[in-house]
Computed example of a mutant assay.
Amino acid sequence: MEIRTLRAFVEVVRQGGFSRAAETIFATQSAVSKAIKQLEDELGVPLLNRQGHKSSLTAAGEIVYVRARRILAERDALLSELDDLRGVKRGVLRLGLPPLGTATLFAPVFAAYRSRYPQIEINLVEHGSGMLEDLLRAGELDLIASLLPVSQEFDWQELRREPLVVLLPESNPLVERPSLKLVDVKELPFILFQSGFALNRVILDACKRNGFEPNVSVQSGQVDFIVELVAAGMGIAFLPRMIADQRDHALVRAITLAEPQTDYHIAMVWRRGSYVPHAARAWLQLSKISAV
């Protein structure tokens, strides 16, 4: 069993097809097909159900996919650890960031990191926190940014804590209040982020603690679009104060949400007990300085 065949198989599954997998690993589609066939012959079981241009995992393929991801992650960790032992300041930082707040929090860190470590390649993955935690758990990422609390299988370093604000149309009489609780707005339609965003969990859990389920009118992954929806009277939305301050809108007011356990509390997260490569430790140090 060779690393190249495992990598080809993992990328076919991850990219959803042979052609995109070939682009990802800089190989021809024919070479990828041969690698998958070689792996299936070696294991003696089919790994993919091929249906035209689409393919899905067989039961055996599901098992091999999970194990292959772990093997590849362990190989990458081994190489990183040996590089650190040799004092090599090159390498790869495998970093996962959520879309919300990335520009505000991490652009300065990226600039400082690139200036200080120009030979380290940054492989950035942007997803909601749930997907990022799965990738971290599988060993495919070294670090992710996620809202606290996180599972006890992870360690974390705090980055920032911000209150949430409620975005309301300027015409809503509640804008005259200095702060709001969720019970004050429970009858209004909610505009939430898409399901992969950790901020949704914060809001929905808080609603549950207050004994109601909100009426969700729209879900989106775009902050600017959400602000415009509020301005158009489609409902109310919730943002961290630092992000709301950057989206000033003449028809929208931001009122502090005075609700326990709803702060935007974000941290850098890694697997507890795992080896943290030099590239990742350097990012942690710079992000800690930036958070001060």
Rank of each mutant, 00 (worst) to 15 (best):
E213G: 00
A267S: 15
L85A: 13
R161L: 12
R75M: 06
F18T: 09
R70C: 04
A27W: 02
D224T: 09
R114P: 04
L147Q: 11
R201H: 06
I36R: 04
K37D: 12
G91K: 02
V183E: 05
P98W: 05
G130M: 05
S217K: 08
S19E: 14
L164F: 08
E187S: 14
L72R: 08
P189E: 01
I266F: 11
L159V: 15
V45M: 12
D263Q: 13
V64A: 03
V175P: 10
P173H: 01
L141S: 07
S171V: 13
Q51E: 14
V150L: 02
R209V: 11
S151W: 05
L100W: 05
L85T: 12
L286Y: 07
L284H: 07
S30G: 14
T5D: 15
V252N: 10
L168R: 03
H249Q: 06
P163C: 01
G211E: 07
T5H: 15
A138L: 09
E121L: 12
R272H: 13
E259D: 06
L251S: 11
V185Y: 07
A237Q: 09
L93W: 03
I191G: 09
T256F: 12
G128P: 08
P108N: 06
P118M: 01
S287P: 07
V165Q: 02
P46C: 03
K181H: 14
K186F: 04
L95P: 11
E187V: 05
R67C: 07
E176C: 03
R247Y: 13
G221R: 10
Q51F: 02
L57R: 06
L48K: 10
A21W: 04
F154V: 03
A35R: 08
A31I: 06
R272I: 10
P108Q: 00
L251Q: 14
F26V: 13
A206N: 07
S129T: 12
G17R: 04
S129F: 00
P163M: 00
G101V: 07
L95Y: 09
A21K: 04
S274D: 14
D248E: 14
L100M: 12
A103V: 15
V165K: 00
I71M: 15
P169A: 05
L95D: 12
M1Y: 06
E162V: 05
G91R: 00
A138F: 01
G52L: 01
L159M: 14
V185T: 10
E213I: 06
T104K: 13
G211M: 04
L105R: 13
A145R: 11
A59H: 09
G61Y: 02
P189F: 00
V166D: 05
L93C: 06
E133P: 02
S274F: 07
S55M: 15
R69I: 12
A31Q: 11
A107L: 08
R7P: 04
E158T: 11
F225K: 15
V165A: 02
D155F: 04
Q194D: 11
K288P: 01
D41V: 09
V292W: 00
I122W: 05
E176M: 11
L159D: 05
